[in-house]
Simulated assay, not measured.
Amino acid sequence: MIGTTRNVEINLGNVTLKGILSVPENSKGIIIFSHGSGSSRLSPRNNFVAKLLNEQQFATLLFDLLTEKEDRVYENRFDIELLTQRLINVTKWVKNNFESSSINNIGYFGASTGSASALKAAAFFGDSIKGVVSRGGRTDLAGNEDLNKINSPTLFIVGGFDDVVIALNRIAYSKLKCEKDFKIVSNASHLFEEPGKLEEVTALTISWFNEFFND
């Protein structure tokens, strides 16, 4: 991959968030990551997925949804409204940032509770979000009203051993009216830690964004 990867500070006015922005040459689009509770821009799983996306000419932004001070308050990690607003504001930052503003296609990759904020932000932005992928997500936390509003093509990926999350995702999936798909990765747990399973997640993710990102 030829391009740039650098640490960024995302100034949202009342708060500054830390991020990692990678922009390959001739990017097809940019994937904004929304991580789960207790995680950060340094999540090894999301960085693994981001690296493989970069190799396929997708730009990526991993960022901390909360400041270090905010993250010390445990309840903030599950404040879906707060996390959603952060993702919305960061998406606006991406649209105006000189390095990424020329990239037309924007997608979300959410994990765990971050999937709920990704879905709610997609409902907010409508057609300007070209695709959403949820990895082991608490998609049910997005709420029926926003799930019904989503226009972005949406893919749910869940590990085959993750029975409770499979059930919750099936309920949320039934509320979606957009183009959608549901993939269960066999013999995989919630974090897809088994050999080769995160690679399967990434392959499904790349295929999804390739299908729905405009040239």
Rank of each mutant, 00 (worst) to 15 (best):
Leu83Tyr: 01
Ala118Glu: 06
Pro24Val: 01
Asn96Cys: 09
Ala203Thr: 08
Lys197Ser: 08
Gly107Cys: 06
Glu99Gln: 15
Ser34Gly: 09
His190Arg: 01
Met1Arg: 09
Val164Cys: 11
Ser152Glu: 10
Ile129Leu: 08
Glu75Cys: 00
Glu25Met: 12
Ala167Leu: 12
Asn76Ser: 13
Val185Cys: 00
Asp64Gln: 02
Ser22Arg: 13
Ser152Ala: 15
Phe125Trp: 11
Phe98Thr: 13
Ile2Thr: 06
Ile103Cys: 03
Gly159Tyr: 11
Leu141Lys: 09
Leu61Thr: 00
Gln85Met: 15
Ser39Ile: 00
Met1Pro: 11
Ala116Tyr: 10
Val165Ile: 15
Asn89Cys: 05
Lys180Gly: 08
Val15Lys: 10
Arg135Lys: 10
Ile30Glu: 09
Glu99Met: 15
Val132Gln: 03
Ser22Ile: 14
Val73Ile: 12
Val164Ala: 15
Arg77Ala: 14
Ala116Gln: 11
Ser43Glu: 00
Ala172Asp: 03
Ala111Thr: 07
Leu198Glu: 04
Leu147Gln: 08
Ala59Arg: 12
Ser152Gln: 12
Lys92Leu: 13
Tyr74Cys: 14
Thr67Val: 12
Asn7Ala: 11
Gly143Val: 14
Asp71Asn: 12
Leu52Gly: 01
Thr67Tyr: 09
Leu52Tyr: 05
Gln85Phe: 07
Leu21Pro: 04
Asn76Thr: 09
Val158Tyr: 12
Gly137Pro: 06
Ser34His: 04
Gly3Glu: 09
Gly143Met: 13
Pro195Ala: 09
Ser117Cys: 13
Arg6Phe: 08
Phe182Ile: 05
Leu42Lys: 04
Phe182Ala: 06
Gly114Cys: 03
Ile184Cys: 08
Ile206Tyr: 02
Asn148Leu: 14
Ala167Gly: 03
Leu141Met: 03
Leu155Phe: 14
Ile166Val: 10
Thr16Asp: 14
Phe192Ile: 03
Thr84Ile: 00
Val73Cys: 04
Leu42Ala: 04
Leu204Ile: 12
Glu145Ser: 14
Ile88Ala: 07
Thr67Gly: 04
Ile2Ala: 09
Ile150Trp: 15
Asn151Trp: 10
Arg77Ile: 11
Thr5Leu: 06
Thr60Ser: 05
Leu66Pro: 08
Lys92Asn: 11
Phe78Tyr: 09
Gln85Tyr: 11
Asn210Gly: 12
Gly143Gln: 07
Ala188Pro: 01
Lys177Gln: 11
Gly137Tyr: 02
His35Asp: 00
Gly29Asn: 04
Thr113Glu: 03
Gly3Pro: 10
Ala122Trp: 05
Ile129Ala: 05
Gln85Cys: 07
Ile171Met: 13
Asn11Glu: 06
Leu52Arg: 06
Ala142Ser: 06
Asn96Leu: 14
Leu147Arg: 08
Asn96Ala: 15
Leu42Gln: 05
Lys177Pro: 13
Ala59Asp: 06
